[in-house]
């Protein structure tokens, strides 16, 4: 797949996940499972942006890890606050 087609595919995926996430968030009750699912979807979107839009899939491991870890780490901290 060419880089252009790859970028197009990632964009379509991001749009679909965003719409699905919003529909789920708007129509479902805010249970802990819903929180986990929404934060996970957000992390997947962040992975796509970091690896394919920022182009860090070809970057040094440490930098890639730092950026990829951002959304999941915030997600875990936020998720934990919903346990109380």
């Amino acid at each position: 797949m060419s880089e252009a087609r790859l970028a197009d595919s990632i964009w379509i995926l991001l749009i679909l996940v965003t719409v699905a996430m919003a529909y789920f968030g708007e129509n479902g009750a805010v249970t802990f499972l819903a929180v986990v699912l929404i934060l996970s979807a957000s992390a997947v979107k962040a992975f796509c942006v970091v690896d394919y839009f920022m182009g860090l899939r070809k970057a040094p491991r440490m930098w890639r890890f730092l950026l990829l870890a951002y959304a999941p780490v915030i997600g875990v901290i936020v998720g934990v606050t919903y346990l109380f």
Binding site: M21, A22, G25, E26, V30, V35, I38, L39, A41, S42, K45, A46, V49, V50, F53, M54, L67, Y70, A71, I74, G75, V78, Y82
Partner: peptide, 18 residues
């Protein structure tokens, strides 16, 4: 520019959905 996008991807569910 992509960082601005990345930040919104965290901000949106936090403020609007959860």
């Amino acid at each position: 520019w992509h960082m601005v996008d990345l930040l919104w991807l965290v901000l949106f569910p936090l403020v609007y959905l959860l």
